[in-house]
Simulated assay, not measured.
Amino acid sequence: PAGSQHPRRWRPARIALALVLTAILFVAGFHFWNYLESYQDTDDAQVDGYLDPISSRINGTIDAVYVDNNQSVKAGQLLVQLDPSDYQVALEQARAQLAQAEADLNSARQQYVSALATVHEDEAQDYLAQRNAQRYSQLIEQKVVSQSEFDQYDAAARVQDATVKRDQAAAGSALRTIASKEAQVKQAQANLDQAGLNLSYTRIIAPANGIIGNRSAQLGQRVQPAQSLMALTQHQFWVTADFKETQLALMRPGQPVTIHVDALGRDFKGHVENMPGATGSLYDLLPPENATGNYVKIVQRLPVRILFDDGQDLSQLRPGMSVEPKIWLR
């Protein structure tokens, strides 16, 4: 009957439709699987940046503090002023010591010039004395002069020769004195330079553009060298993403990255800068020693450094913000 043949006519159509749907699902599934295999992501990641400690290089008392927490500053901006009085006095003392050292050096040089002049004079007199002794030596052989006259000129020549040697030694000593005085001048100049540096260290300035945080400097506070007064967060950011070791097989430097910032609800573009040198646990103060105890295999995480691409507005980013990077492997 006609009614009994209707389902049979639709049976091939149903089979064809099922095959088409199966093919569509297979293609969609293949593309979906290919998409999942084309990237690696993690939620164990954050924005990082340089947190520069601002500290004093000298002892001193704080005269003024010109910044507060969360304040933006420029490189070279004055942050803290220490009392400069003691260091100004030390600078004047160093200048006086340098002037005295230079005066002593000039005096030593003049003494050396005088000693050289004395040596030259002695050498001239010695030349005359030696010539006289030589002439009288010839005359005594010819018995023209007496022995006493010859002895007188011979003794004078010997005395003059000793005088030359004595004054040459004095000139050498004067020359060594000049070297000593020159060293004292250099030492005094170094002391002056250090005093000038110490005076400049009373002005604590920002080393770079950034934002001030963790300020502990207070007016009238006595500070010591290397004592932290505040921190400066530079406007230079990157992402540290801790991927599982099983996710790193296909990662390479330069691969593109999509960085989702939770706090801002938007994505940024970046790229992998470099791969880690070791797992994070090995950088701990007390790294694990698996050979000394019971071993439990744990999937390790390694920090991958990701840079933001140029041309993006990063002004709202702050170190410590949670992000979700997605590294595109192909």
Results as ranks from 00 to 15, higher is better:
Thr240Lys: 14
Leu250Met: 12
Arg203Tyr: 08
Phe237Pro: 06
Gln224Arg: 09
Ala217Ser: 08
Val223Met: 06
Pro207Arg: 01
Ile205Cys: 01
Pro225Val: 04
Asn209Glu: 14
Ala241Glu: 07
Leu250Gln: 15
Arg222Trp: 00
Phe243Ala: 10
Pro225Gln: 01
Ala206Val: 04
Glu245Gly: 15
Met230Ser: 01
Trp238Tyr: 12
Leu250Gly: 07
Gln236Met: 07
Gln224His: 04
Met230Thr: 01
Ala231Asn: 13
Ser216Glu: 12
Leu219Gly: 06
Thr246His: 11
Leu232Trp: 05
Gly220Cys: 05
Gln224Ile: 09
Phe243Ser: 10
Asp242Met: 09
Ala217Lys: 02
Leu250Trp: 05
Gly210Asp: 09
Ala206Tyr: 02
Asn214Arg: 04
Asp242Val: 00
Gln221Glu: 15
Gln247Lys: 13
Ala241Gly: 08
Gln227Tyr: 03
Ala217His: 03
Phe243Trp: 10
Thr233Ile: 10
Lys244Phe: 09
His235Glu: 12
Met230Tyr: 00
Asn209Ala: 14
Pro225Thr: 02
His235Tyr: 15
Ala206Pro: 04
Ala241Gln: 07
Leu232Val: 05
Arg222Lys: 03
Ala217Val: 07
Ile205Leu: 11
Gly213Lys: 07
Ala226Ser: 06
Val239Ile: 15
Gly210Met: 08
Val223Thr: 05
His235Asn: 14
Gln224Asn: 12
Leu250Phe: 11
Asn214Glu: 11
Thr233Gly: 10
Ala217Thr: 07
Leu250Pro: 00
Gln218Asn: 09
Gln224Lys: 12
Leu229Ile: 01
Asn214Lys: 06
Ile211Arg: 11
Thr240Tyr: 10
Ala241Met: 06
Ala206Lys: 02
Val239Lys: 02
Leu232Ala: 03
His235Gln: 14
Gln227Lys: 05
Gln221Met: 13
Gly210Glu: 10
Gln234Trp: 02
Gln224Pro: 00
Ala249Ile: 13
His235Ala: 08
Ile204Asp: 02
Leu248Cys: 13
Val223Gly: 06
Gly210Ser: 08
Gln218Thr: 15
Gln227Met: 09
Met230Ile: 01
Ala208Arg: 12
Ile212Tyr: 04
Ile212Thr: 08
Ile211Met: 12
Asp242Lys: 11
Thr246Asn: 13
Gln236Glu: 15
Ala208Gly: 03
Ala231Asp: 14
Leu229Met: 00
Ile205Gln: 04
Thr240Glu: 15
Ile204Phe: 03
Pro207Met: 04
Gln227Asn: 03
Gln247Leu: 11
Leu229Asp: 00
Ala217Trp: 04
Ala249Tyr: 12
Leu229Tyr: 00
Ile211Asn: 05
Ser216Arg: 11
Pro225Phe: 01
Thr246Met: 12
Gly220Trp: 09
Trp238Gln: 09
Leu219Thr: 14
Gly210Lys: 08
